[in-house]
């Protein structure tokens, strides 16, 4: 399939712990993560905090060096960058939206000086007049108009939603092909979240970009994506077409996640779920399947060997021996 734009093959990321007591101990933040992203597709990476989903985005973004495995962009292995040119070429194609709109804009800079940087770094504007037009275009593209009103303002003069729009404008400035969106709406007020989500969906269509949409919210993932990958304790547990994964969740963890999500439309209080325990320590991850300590169906074999990703048809893969 030559429609694939980004592919991860068995990528792992281990963080070394600091301090004498922790010498030679590592955090298994991301283990054996493999998936691909098609051109113009939106893939949701769903997981709880500590599941490794943000690490995955950061590794793809080149902010953390991967421990092992390979990342391919357009079929070419990319990271780590050997030259600054290679790094810039990659960043021209892959951009990231950060989670916290209050932390991701430098409080000491104006919107103009924040937004003009990508154009200057990647030499996208030929003249100051062209730059001015590009700045206005990119602000108006994210619904901040009239753009002139916003350019001279400081981040603290904008609301959370407006700041996140500026962030999105900055990531789209270089006309990237892939956007890594790290929980872009989780810090925003409920009433404006959907507006930002709709805008991202529209931009995805208009600019033909691929989205890796990272979230902890299964329902939000359903709204935003065509495929879903669910991560738990550093590993992908289930990946497949959105409707299929949500309607016919196979992995016990995904079933638990689905049962836990608020579901107001069901009209009655839901039956109790067999939830026990919490995400395990990633310094000493459980042997075998990482979910077996909480799994209601765990058998002896689950604690002995790490299950492989199994194809259950229709592009649906599950990491569980019981399937």
């Amino acid at each position: 399939m030559n429609n694939v734009i980004l592919e991860l093959k068995h990528v792992s990321k281990h963080f070394a712990l600091s301090g004498l007591r922790n010498i030679s101990k590592v955090v298994h933040a991301m283990d054996d993560v493999s998936f691909f992203l098609n051109k113009g597709e939106s893939l949701a990476l769903v997981g709880e905090s500590g599941s490794g989903k943000t690490t995955t985005a950061s590794v793809i973004a080149g902010m953390y060096e991967k421990t092992s495995g390979e990342i391919y962009l357009d079929g070419q292995p990319v990271l780590p960058f050997k030259t600054r040119e290679a790094s810039l070429r990659y960043k021209k194609k892959v951009q990231m939206i950060f989670q916290d709109p209050f932390a991701s804009l430098n409080p000491t800079h104006t919107i103009r000086s924040i937004l003009e940087r990508p154009f200057l770094i990647h030499k996208l504007a030929g003249s100051t007049r062209e730059l001015e037009a590009m700045l206005c275009d990119s602000l108006e593209m994210v619904g901040l108009s009239p753009a002139k009103e916003y350019l001279h303002r400081f981040p603290h003069e904008l609301s959370g939603g407006q700041r996140q729009r500026v962030n999105i404008a900055r990531t789209f400035a270089v006309s990237p092909e892939i956007i890594l969106a790290d929980e872009p709406t989780s810090m925003l007020d409920v009433s404006i979240r959907i507006g930002i989500m709709n805008m991202m969906l529209d931009l995805k269509e208009k600019k033909h970009v691929s989205f890796l949409y990272i979230t902890h919210d299964l329902a939000g993932a359903r709204y935003m994506s065509t495929r879903i990958a669910v991560m738990y304790a550093g590993m992908i547990m289930e990946i497949g077409p959105t409707e299929e994964v949500i309607a016919n969740a196979v992995h016990p963890y995904v079933q638990l996640l689905k049962a836990s999500a608020p579901a107001p439309q069901e009209g009655v209080r839901k039956a109790a779920i067999p939830a026990k325990g919490e995400i395990p320590s990633l310094v000493h991850p459980p042997s075998g399947c990482r979910f077996h300590t909480r799994c209601p169906y765990a058998k002896k074999i689950c604690s002995e060997e790490v299950p492989a990703m199994r194809d259950i048809g229709n592009g649906h893969f599950v990491r569980c021996v019981l399937v």
């Binding site: 609301s159 009433s191 979240r193 959907i194 507006g195 709709n198 329902a219 939000g220 359903r222 579901a263």
Partner: peptide, 18 residues
């Protein structure tokens, strides 16, 4: 303003402004 896990996916509105 919040997507759901079941039912058809339709475009949601949210609320403009702040």
């Amino acid at each position: 303003a919040f997507p759901t896990l079941t039912g058809p996916i339709s475009r949601m509105g949210g609320i403009e402004g702040q």
